[in-house]
Simulated scan of single mutants.
Amino acid sequence: MNNRNTRFSATKGSDLTRKTAIVCALFAALPYSQLNAQENAWSGLARSQFDSAALTLRIPCVVLEDEIGNSLPGFSPAFALNLLLISDDEDNQLLRLVEPLQEFAEVPASCLDTLKVSSDGTTATYSTNSTELDIDAAVYANRYYTIELQANLEGQGPIDFSVLSAESRIYRAPMFRGDTLLIIIPAPPFVADFIYDDALIVSSVQKVYTDLAVYEPSTIDVSCSYFDPLGLLELVDVVNGNSRYRLKSTVTAANNNTSFSVRCSVFNRDLNRDVIDIDILSWFIQI
Score class of each variant (00 low, 15 high):
residue 7 R to A: 06
residue 78 A to D: 08
residue 63 V to F: 00
residue 276 I to K: 12
residue 191 V to K: 06
residue 182 L to K: 14
residue 236 V to D: 10
residue 34 Q to K: 11
residue 110 S to A: 15
residue 194 F to I: 02
residue 268 N to D: 14
residue 250 T to G: 01
residue 162 S to A: 05
residue 204 S to G: 09
residue 164 L to R: 07
residue 185 I to K: 03
residue 179 D to R: 13
residue 203 S to W: 03
residue 35 L to C: 14
residue 268 N to L: 03
residue 176 F to D: 09
residue 62 V to I: 06
residue 147 I to L: 10
residue 53 A to Y: 01
residue 12 K to R: 13
residue 243 S to C: 04
residue 279 D to W: 06
residue 113 D to W: 02
residue 234 E to Y: 13
residue 249 S to W: 12
residue 139 V to H: 06
residue 141 A to E: 13
residue 190 F to C: 06
residue 138 A to R: 08
residue 76 S to R: 10
residue 112 L to T: 10
residue 89 D to W: 07
residue 148 E to W: 00
residue 253 A to K: 08
residue 17 T to M: 14
residue 284 F to L: 08
residue 54 A to C: 10
residue 196 Y to G: 01
residue 110 S to P: 04
residue 63 V to S: 03
residue 54 A to D: 12
residue 238 V to A: 09
residue 160 D to I: 11
residue 119 S to N: 13
residue 281 L to N: 05
residue 142 N to Q: 11
residue 123 T to G: 02
residue 23 V to K: 07
residue 251 V to C: 07
residue 14 S to C: 11
residue 173 A to T: 07
residue 173 A to I: 05
residue 55 L to W: 05
residue 192 A to V: 06
residue 279 D to C: 04
residue 165 S to L: 02
residue 63 V to P: 03
residue 233 L to V: 08
residue 211 D to S: 12
residue 75 F to H: 06
residue 121 G to S: 14
residue 95 L to K: 01
residue 120 D to M: 08
residue 27 F to Q: 15
residue 173 A to Q: 07
residue 283 W to F: 13
residue 72 L to Y: 02
residue 186 P to N: 06
residue 4 R to N: 02
residue 150 Q to R: 15
residue 279 D to P: 10
residue 42 W to F: 03
residue 228 D to I: 07
residue 118 S to A: 08
residue 65 E to D: 04
residue 273 R to Q: 15
residue 254 A to W: 02
residue 8 F to D: 12
residue 20 T to G: 07
residue 167 E to T: 09
residue 103 E to D: 14
residue 31 P to C: 05
residue 287 I to D: 07
residue 12 K to G: 06
residue 120 D to K: 09
residue 17 T to F: 12
residue 280 I to M: 05
residue 260 F to G: 04
residue 260 F to S: 04
residue 247 L to P: 10
residue 272 N to G: 11
residue 94 L to G: 02
residue 124 A to Y: 11
residue 219 T to L: 06
residue 40 N to D: 08
residue 220 I to S: 01
residue 8 F to R: 15
residue 87 S to I: 05
residue 240 N to H: 13
residue 245 Y to R: 08
residue 119 S to V: 06
residue 132 E to P: 00
residue 115 L to I: 02
residue 165 S to M: 00
residue 267 F to P: 05
residue 202 V to G: 04
residue 130 S to N: 13
residue 230 L to H: 04
